[in-house]
Amino acid sequence: MGNSIRVLVVDDSAFMRKVISDMLNKYPGIQVIGTARNGQEALKKRKELRPDVMTLDVEMPVMNGLETLKQLMEEDPCPTVMVSSTTKQGAENTLLAMEYGAVDFVTKPSGAISLDIDKVEHQIIDKVIYASKAKVIRKEEKNVNRPLSNRVVPQKKMNQKKIVAIGISTGGPRALKEVIPKLQASIQAPIVIVQHMPAGFTLSLAERLNSLSDITVKEARDGDFLQNGTAYVAPGGFHLSIKKKGDAFVAHLHTEEPRRGHRPSVDVLYESLAEIPTVDTVAVIMTGMGADGTEGLIKLKKTSNCYAIAEAEKSCVVFGMPKAAIRTNLVDEIVPVEEISRCIERLL
């Protein structure tokens, strides 16, 4: 078992600890080296056992998942996958956990003790594997501001209506917190965001970002007319496409097949914008596993005026989606997360 991923499973329910451990141990490349029933025990075992990854229940007695994660990321960071309930409170706490530095989360299908947890078995395994390779950023770590690159922005037809379209996945809530609150309310474009997340979590994400930002942030609704200075987050479980209606642009939500396993999908959003030649798109591809957004970017670049920004590897939790986009040679600028808002504002 020399090269296997060593995991510490933390949950206050003995049943959940056993089931999650059995699931992970079935996978040949993963070994559960210990379990803990609360946060205090988890921090102690982290020091003793040195796991590669932790799965951490959000709601626990003695010391809950959030407090545990906060302390962990300040003192002794470890890649962590949160295991949460889908309640509104659970969703809000999970988003805070992402901000504190958790790599990703899995939702229990039916409450704190989910007898049907096997429904998410493949998700837990996949996310533990990805977490073992992810970059963990200490809670207090701040990126050093570097001057912006002096790239000349192509001024092909930059007098048209503009839309900023952001695609993001693993590590997204924390990265979006670095970008959206820095945008000015006077920004002359609407912002549309596809963040890979299940239903229920995107509303909490929009509300959280809205509370931190000058611009308005809301979960997109079918038929919304896109307004400058407003960001629209695609709801979990729905694709978001943009349609032109007269001089206006309208959000269209639909449930066509998932793309690359995702609904919402960045490709679907970008492809809808590629069909509107009278719009300038600022396409931003940020941290996330996989390659969602790359096919859509290729179409956008072919048919419309698009300026593409990719997040630099050094600030990504997972450098999958930006890397795939950069490989197309269609990305105009590669910048760390703390420079993305300035790039967007400079283009507008």
Rank of each mutant, 00 (worst) to 15 (best):
N3E: 09
V9C: 07
D11P: 03
D12T: 07
S13P: 03
A14Q: 14
A14Y: 05
I20L: 09
M23H: 07
L24Q: 03
G34Q: 08
L43S: 12
L43T: 11
R46W: 00
R46I: 08
G65L: 03
E74S: 10
E75H: 11
D76Y: 12
M82S: 14
S84V: 08
S85A: 15
T86M: 14
T86I: 15
K88V: 14
G90K: 06
E92G: 04
T94S: 08
T94Q: 12
A102V: 04
V103D: 06
P109H: 03
L115D: 04
D116K: 13
I125N: 05
D126I: 06
A134G: 06
A134P: 07
A134I: 12
A134H: 06
V136C: 09
V136M: 01
R138E: 02
R138H: 10
K139V: 10
E140C: 02
K142G: 07
V144K: 15
V144F: 05
P147H: 05
V152W: 00
V153G: 00
M158S: 03
K161T: 04
K161N: 09
K161H: 11
K162E: 02
A165D: 10
V179H: 04
I180V: 15
P181I: 08
S186V: 12
Q188W: 00
Q188N: 15
A189Q: 05
V192L: 02
M197P: 03
M197A: 01
A199Q: 13
T202R: 08
L203G: 05
R208T: 04
R208S: 10
L212R: 14
S213M: 02
D214G: 09
A220H: 00
D224E: 03
Q227D: 12
A234F: 02
G237H: 02
D247W: 00
A248N: 14
F249A: 05
H254D: 08
E256N: 13
E256F: 00
E257W: 00
G261K: 13
A274S: 15
A274R: 12
V282M: 10
T287I: 07
G288C: 11
G293Q: 02
T294R: 13
K299A: 08
S304M: 03
Y307A: 05
K314E: 14
V317M: 06
G320Y: 11
P322L: 12
P322M: 14
A325M: 01
I326F: 03
N329G: 09
N329P: 00
L330Y: 09
R342V: 01
E345D: 13
